[in-house]
């Protein structure tokens, strides 16, 4: 039992995971080499790895990456301003909150990304469409988490504020908002993730913008190793982005 615990807790699981991925890539390489997999459908992993440098240098990956991140940051800035403001408004006006909170929750689970043709019509095939799609996707969690954070301010903190005879404005800025920041940051993290997913997805779908468009471009040119390399690049960027967001959230909540 003790030895099993040691195996589970040591570096073995992580090494096993990496070894599993390496074995899978080697298997695919082997299957393509012996002709069991069609190289015109699945390129060799060695070719994909080899085309990384070409894709990065020739396809301006860094510029595209910066563009996608910029779109994402614009969307999140909008989400922060609008989402937190709506959250505060709904928290303050109880009747409005009762009337609309379920709508916001329904909107959070609605397939917002499918509205991209509508956004295309309204904002044209431009970066604004992409930013607005990110904004629409990231808005509901920020509203809901802001309401949750403001509603869960501890009574003792409010009582302290009252004992200092704080005005409602001071109560909000000095007690309610600071105490609700952890919840708001959770909402912002979710909003950031939803915005990024939608932004890359819409870039791909409308063939405009940064990393999403790169995949579409390479696929349309039938550059298979390049397409796979670009997809891997986007996956790495997304995973890195989520890991950073998670660490930042933990650091802020600490």
């Amino acid at each position: 039992m003790t030895s099993r615990l040691r195996i589970d807790d040591g570096p073995l699981p992580a090494l096993m995971g990496l070894a599993g991925i390496a074995a899978l890539l080697l298997l695919i390489e082997g299957l393509i080499s012996v002709g069991l997999l069609n190289p015109f459908i699945v390129p060799k992993p060695s070719q994909v790895i080899g085309s990384f440098y070409r894709v990065v240098v020739e396809e301006n990956v860094l510029e595209r990456f910066v563009l996608t991140i910029k779109e994402c940051l614009f969307a999140v800035a909008l989400v922060t301003i609008v989402g937190v403001s709506i959250g505060v408004l709904l928290h303050r006006v109880s009747l409005l909150r009762q009337a609309t909170e379920t709508w916001v929750a329904a909107f959070a689970s609605a397939p917002v990304v499918l509205m991209y043709p509508l956004f295309l019509v309204m904002f044209g095939r431009s970066a604004l469409t992409i930013v607005m799609m990110g904004f629409a996707a990231g808005l509901p969690p920020v509203i809901l988490k802001t309401i949750e954070g403001l509603s869960s301010t501890r009574r003792v903190l409010l009582a302290v504020g009252q004992s200092f005879k704080l005005t409602p404005r001071q109560m909000f800025w000095k007690i309610q908002l600071p105490s609700s920041l952890p919840a708001i940051f959770v909402g912002l993290k979710l909003g950031l993730i939803f915005a990024l997913i939608n932004i890359v997805g819409v870039e791909f779908l409308i063939n405009f913008g940064g990393l999403g468009q790169l995949i579409n471009d390479l696929a349309e040119r039938y550059d298979l190793p390049g397409t796979y390399a670009a997809i891997s690049f986007v996956v790495v960027v997304s995973v890195g982005f989520f890991m950073i967001a998670e660490r930042a959230e933990r650091w802020l909540i600490r």
Binding site: I7, D8, L12, P13, A14, M16, G17, G20, I21, I41, V42, I193, L196, I197, N198, V200, G201, F204, L205, G212, I215, N216, L218, A219, L224, T227, Y228, I231, V234, V235, S238, V239, F242, M243
Partner: peptide, 28 residues
Amino acid sequence: RLLSKAIEPYLYYLGPTPKIIFFPVLIM
């Protein structure tokens, strides 16, 4: 536990990536 620790982190982080980017591969 071993399999979970070896594989689940990859699934956890791959989960929120935009899956539509895999569509060109799926068409192939």
